Amino acid sequence: MIPNSAGEMMVVERDRQQTVGTSMMEQLVPEITTHVLSYLDYRSLCSLSITNSSMSKAANDDNAWKTLFHKDFTTEQASINLN
């Protein structure tokens, strides 16, 4: 419910076709999905990609893999530089 210009509460119905059958994860904006996926390791990201088509699309996004690569590469580089 949201207030209209007269201050009365209006019921706003969401597009039911879009939300029926979709998970909360699938309804997130891409930037948040990428951030959430950045906490996964390689194996988990691959596992997620085979769950359904929208998770496959999210898990196969270049930004998710770039974030994962950067995180691991930076950690590996730091350990090499310390030796």
Score class of each variant (00 low, 15 high):
1 M>G: 07
1 M>K: 09
1 M>H: 10
1 M>R: 11
3 P>W: 03
3 P>Y: 06
3 P>D: 07
3 P>A: 10
3 P>H: 06
4 N>P: 04
4 N>H: 02
5 S>L: 08
5 S>W: 03
5 S>D: 13
6 A>M: 08
6 A>V: 04
7 G>V: 05
7 G>F: 03
8 E>G: 05
8 E>L: 09
11 V>K: 12
11 V>H: 14
12 V>F: 07
12 V>C: 07
13 E>V: 13
14 R>T: 03
17 Q>T: 11
17 Q>G: 15
17 Q>P: 04
18 Q>A: 14
18 Q>F: 14
20 V>Q: 09
21 G>N: 08
23 S>I: 01
25 M>Q: 00
26 E>Q: 15
27 Q>C: 14
27 Q>D: 03
27 Q>T: 11
27 Q>W: 05
27 Q>H: 07
28 L>K: 03
28 L>W: 05
29 V>N: 11
30 P>G: 01
31 E>V: 07
31 E>F: 01
31 E>G: 05
34 T>G: 05
34 T>D: 11
35 H>C: 02
38 S>L: 07
38 S>W: 08
39 Y>L: 11
39 Y>R: 05
39 Y>I: 06
41 D>S: 07
42 Y>C: 12
42 Y>I: 12
43 R>M: 03
43 R>H: 04
44 S>K: 02
44 S>D: 12
44 S>W: 00
45 L>S: 09
45 L>Y: 05
46 C>N: 11
46 C>W: 05
47 S>D: 04
48 L>C: 14
49 S>P: 04
49 S>R: 02
49 S>F: 00
49 S>G: 09
50 I>W: 06
51 T>R: 01
52 N>H: 08
52 N>L: 02
52 N>Q: 09
53 S>Y: 11
54 S>K: 15
55 M>C: 14
56 S>A: 09
56 S>K: 15
57 K>S: 15
58 A>E: 00
58 A>T: 06
58 A>M: 13
59 A>D: 04
59 A>W: 00
61 D>Y: 03
63 N>C: 10
64 A>R: 00
65 W>N: 01
66 K>T: 13
66 K>P: 03
66 K>W: 12
67 T>M: 14
67 T>L: 15
68 L>H: 08
70 H>G: 06
70 H>E: 13
71 K>S: 11
71 K>C: 07
71 K>T: 10
71 K>Y: 04
72 D>K: 13
72 D>E: 13
73 F>Y: 10
73 F>I: 02
74 T>V: 11
74 T>P: 00
75 T>N: 15
75 T>A: 15
76 E>D: 11
77 Q>G: 02
77 Q>Y: 14
78 A>V: 08
78 A>N: 09
79 S>P: 03
79 S>A: 14
82 L>V: 07
82 L>C: 10
82 L>A: 15
83 N>W: 07
83 N>R: 14
83 N>P: 08
